[in-house]
């Protein structure tokens, strides 16, 4: 009896060992492999200048690199897109709105059918030739070469800009890197001013009294992301010990840029000041202070300030000896009063 039991147990063990092999018939094998989704991630995100020094205060209209280093198990070809959003975040609480030159930019990298594509919105703020996507095993290194528009809102002491980056792989897995803070500097630009102003006479005899035949315009384009004031200062025209007083000529401010006020003394022709005088005060002040999160704020990129040096209104230069009389007359731009934005 005892032996029977042992034989039965042995047969049972052998049967247990054999059954799997019997079932493992090639027609009936059903194998499944479950792979958990692997979302791409970020190693780091940073902004540098073109010499690769880390930058936290950005000038507008100047090229910088946004470095995005990501990790994906399947390498760079599995990354379908990277969307970087640079936006004005106010005191830190604002989120990105619609793309716009003043407050929000997106830089996008997409990869499809073996072709990489780089774009920016608004257009024209990506330096495509300097952008790159470099594989490094699981790691991928992306460089977005970009520049902010001249009227991008400066962050000042109390506000900030931020970068957020969203990466997506080919299976649609996304990861977002949020809130790398940076600052945008104030910018004031003045262009198109002639380097000289010839104050010559219609009368070619230098020893006779003469007047200017017509007013001499000085035009310039002012572009800024902050309120701007324009100052002016003249000096007598000198030739050795001889002089033509600068008060002989007059100055008129003929245009008022948005939001500014013109010095009333120079709204009509006034004598050239010998000490620095504000001609236009706080131009763009109102426009710059508008909250970019509200609709309807102004784009000031086409602002123009014009001046006329006008000696046609009866100014007569007295007898002076012949010679080249010259002086330096100075226009100065400085930040106007007011808070931006």
């Amino acid at each position: 009896m005892y032996q029977k039991t042992r034989i039965t147990a042995l047969i049972a063990i052998l049967a247990l060992l054999t059954i799997p092999f019997v079932w493992a018939d090639s027609e009936s094998v059903s194998a499944t492999a479950g792979i958990n989704p692997y979302a791409p991630s970020f190693e780091y995100v940073e902004i540098t200048d073109t010499e690769l020094s880390i930058s936290s205060h950005l000038d507008v209209d100047r090229e910088y690199y946004l470095h995005v280093h990501s990790i994906d198990k399947n390498g760079i070809t599995d990354i379908a897109s990277l969307v970087c959003t640079l936006f004005f975040a106010g005191d830190g609480s604002l989120s990105a709105g619609a793309t716009d030159t003043r407050s929000c930019y997106t830089l996008t990298y997409t990869y499809a059918n073996g072709t990489a594509n780089w774009t920016s919105a608004p257009a024209g703020h990506l330096v495509e030739g300097d952008c790159s996507a470099t594989p490094d095993g699981y790691r991928s290194r992306f460089i977005f070469a970009f520049s902010l528009g001249k009227i991008a809102i400066p962050s000042g002491d109390t506000n900030t800009w931020k970068v957020s980056v969203t990466i997506m792989d080919r299976s649609g897995q996304t990861t977002t890197y949020a809130d790398l803070p940076f600052d945008v500097n104030d910018y004031i630009e003045w262009s198109g001013v002639p380097s000289t102003l010839e104050l010559s006479s219609t009368c070619m005899d230098p020893e006779s009294p003469w007047t200017l035949p017509q007013s001499q315009p000085v035009q310039a384009v002012v572009t800024s992301n902050v309120p701007v004031s324009v100052l002016f200062c003249g000096a007598d025209l000198m030739y050795g010990a001889d002089a033509i007083a600068c008060e002989t000529f007059t100055l008129e401010t003929v245009a008022t840029p948005a939001g500014g006020t013109v010095n009333t003394a120079y709204a009509i022709p006034g004598a050239i000041p010998t000490e620095s005088v504000t001609l236009v005060d706080t131009a763009y002040g109102t426009a710059c202070m508008l909250d970019p999160t509200l609709a309807g704020y102004c784009n000031n990129s086409a602002g123009i300030a014009s001046f006329v040096i006008d000696a046609a209104t009866g100014a007569t230069v007295p007898y002076v000896p012949a010679g080249t009389y010259s002086a330096v007359w100075t226009f100065t731009l400085e930040r106007g009063a007011g808070v931006t934005p």
Binding site: W190, S195, T196, G234, T324, S326, A327, V328, E334, R335
Partner: peptide
Amino acid sequence: ANGYALSGEGTTGDRPVSYLQTSGSLR
């Protein structure tokens, strides 16, 4: 910052001229 054009006109003949200068200031 006072700017001077390096390739500007050096002489003007016997005519009065004002060299216009652009300056920008940081406060």
